[in-house]
């Protein structure tokens, strides 16, 4: 494989964290996502052979790269190994998307902290953290004294929760799982999945709360769109949020980032379902925006900010 230039010459690699305990369906979700993902995708997994593929570095038709995450140990000394592996992937493989599947006992917050350096260096951009839950075991394992901190941390740090194997449990149990998730991480978008796959008819997050659903013959897949937003006026911000609300950019479940609002200064924007939270940013943070959802209109999102000077 030919060496490529330094990562600093490129856009940061869009990066997703795919978390969840053993048996929740992380690998199934990744394989399902890869069926539809455009461009070149690199997958950083916790152990060899995890995707049912041989070898530590495999090129498949369609541009998939699989690299092992070393060790599987949560100990602090291993974090540098993870950072180095991520930098190496960005430099050598320059994928369009990097999926990181950590160990089933990894704390999402620790993983994000470990990746802060490559994110700050512009090597990667962490777009979202998805956590899959095993519908059959979640409530049992979510008891406060069942496991260590990792289990609930995976829920509380996720941008999106997928309750997998939803076909194997009763509707009543699913409702109780959703209530428990909402108690741990209020407002986080939650969807029910089977075999890591979202249904063809997509209900609103929370699933039991009614349909509403755009329809797809292939089933939906999670998408994220990122951009560097230009400074925006309060009026422009209101316009942007209005367009999010009416679905002009697609079905937005979650939005997060830093916007430079001309009358207010840098503001931290958090969109969780219908709720919008805007708080001032302290310190220096570069503007950025990530929207997570389904059927996102990437062109329209980029155009909205390009027209205002963003990229």
């Amino acid at each position: 494989m030919a060496e490529q230039g330094p990562a600093t010459d490129r856009q940061p690699v869009r990066t997703w964290l795919i978390g969840g305990f053993l048996g929740a369906g992380k690998t199934t979700f990744i394989l399902e996502h890869l069926r539809h993902a455009p461009g070149k995708v690199a997958v950083l997994v916790n152990e060899f052979g995890k995707l049912g593929l041989d070898g530590d570095l495999i090129r498949l038709e369609g541009g998939l790269e699989v690299v092992e995450l070393p060790g599987g140990c949560i100990c602090c000394s291993q974090k540098e190994g993870l950072r180095e592996r991520v930098r190496d992937i960005a430099r050598r493989l320059a994928p369009d998307l990097l999926l990181i599947e950590p160990s089933g006992v990894a704390e999402t917050s620790e993983l994000m902290q470990a990746l802060e350096d490559p994110a700050r260096e512009g090597v990667i951009r962490i777009e979202l953290a998805i956590t899959l839950l095993d519908a059959e075991t979640f409530l049992e394992y979510a008891e406060p004294d069942a496991f260590g901190l990792f289990f609930l941390d995976q829920v509380s740090c996720a941008d999106l929760i997928l309750i997998n194997k939803s076909d194997l449990v009763s509707p009543d149990l699913l409702r109780r799982i959703e209530e428990r998730v909402d108690a741990i991480h209020p407002g986080v978008p939650v969807f029910r999945t089977e075999h890591g796959r979202l249904p063809a008819v997509l209900p609103e997050p929370g699933s039991s709360r009614g349909a509403g659903a755009p329809v797809s013959s292939r089933g939906f897949r999670v998408e994220a769109a990122s951009c560097v937003p230009a400074p925006i006026t309060r009026e422009g911000l209101a316009q942007f949020l209005g367009e999010v609300r009416i679905g002009a950019f697609g079905k937005v479940l979650r939005g997060k980032g830093v916007l430079a609002v001309s009358e207010l200064g840098p503001m931290n924007l958090q969109i969780v379902g219908p709720k919008v939270n805007l708080t001032p940013v302290t310190g220096e943070l570069a503007p950025r925006l990530t929207l997570l959802g389904f059927g996102l209109n990437h062109d329209r999102i980029h155009r909205f900010f390009e027209e205002r000077g963003g990229v």
Binding site: I74, D145, A146, F147, G148, F150
Partner: peptide, 8 residues
């Protein structure tokens, strides 16, 4: 550590 193991 508390990350992996509960007090119980």
């Amino acid at each position: 550590s508390g990350s992996l193991v509960s007090p119980r």
